[in-house]
């Protein structure tokens, strides 16, 4: 069996393992909530993680379209960027995918001599890691921009009007 076929066959197991690893970065009660609580609206974090992880997985083994991938990675990273994680923790879902793939399919890679395929896959995952980091940085920059704009907007109108009332002499 090829590596791709093996991965597709074990998709459910890999996804569950991946989600568990990722949600385990939260305290126990929150991890349980994010993993198990149903509902797109009652549990937006868990739902967004689950849906986007599956989309990333599918995209990785289908078209690997950069625009689609950016959207799915953004879904997860945008949440992590505000939750107080360090940058490496925030984007740790990428190495966790590699770990999950290896834990489920690693033995087959060794047994069937699929190391070349595995290396090819890890290169794709490297690119995914870069994309996640870029997304994380753009989210953080946006947060700082919003902070700056908020302080600016608080006084801008008042200043504009003060100046309009008393033009510089």
């Amino acid at each position: 069996m090829s590596l791709d076929a093996s991965i597709k066959q074990n998709k459910g197991q890999i996804l569950n393992l991946w989600l568990k690893k990722f949600t385990d970065t939260y305290p126990e009660q929150s991890a349980q909530f994010f993993q198990n609580s149903p509902g797109q609206f009652n549990n937006p974090v868990g739902y967004t993680f689950r849906v986007n992880m599956e989309k990333i997985f599918d995209e990785l083994f289908q078209d690997n379209d950069p625009d689609n991938m950016r959207k799915y990675v953004d879904g997860i990273t945008r949440i992590r960027a505000v939750q107080g994680f360090s940058p490496s923790e925030a984007v740790s879902f990428v190495p966790m995918l590699r770990e999950s793939l290896w834990e489920v399919c690693g033995q087959e890679v060794s047994r069937e001599g699929l190391l070349a395929n595995w290396l090819e896959l890890t290169q794709k995952l490297e690119k995914l890691a870069h994309l996640a980091f870029d997304t994380y940085m753009s989210c953080r920059e946006q947060l700082w921009k919003q902070r700056a704009e908020m302080f600016h907007n608080r006084t801008r109108k008042l200043l504009e009007r003060a100046i309009a009332k008393k033009p510089a002499e």
């Binding site: 009660q29 929150s30 609580s37 549990n43 949440i79």
Partner: peptide, 17 residues
Amino acid sequence: CADKCHYFIGSGDPMNM
């Protein structure tokens, strides 16, 4: 009430339950 607070839902910090 535990999973009804927007801060818990969004942060995953159990102290916000």
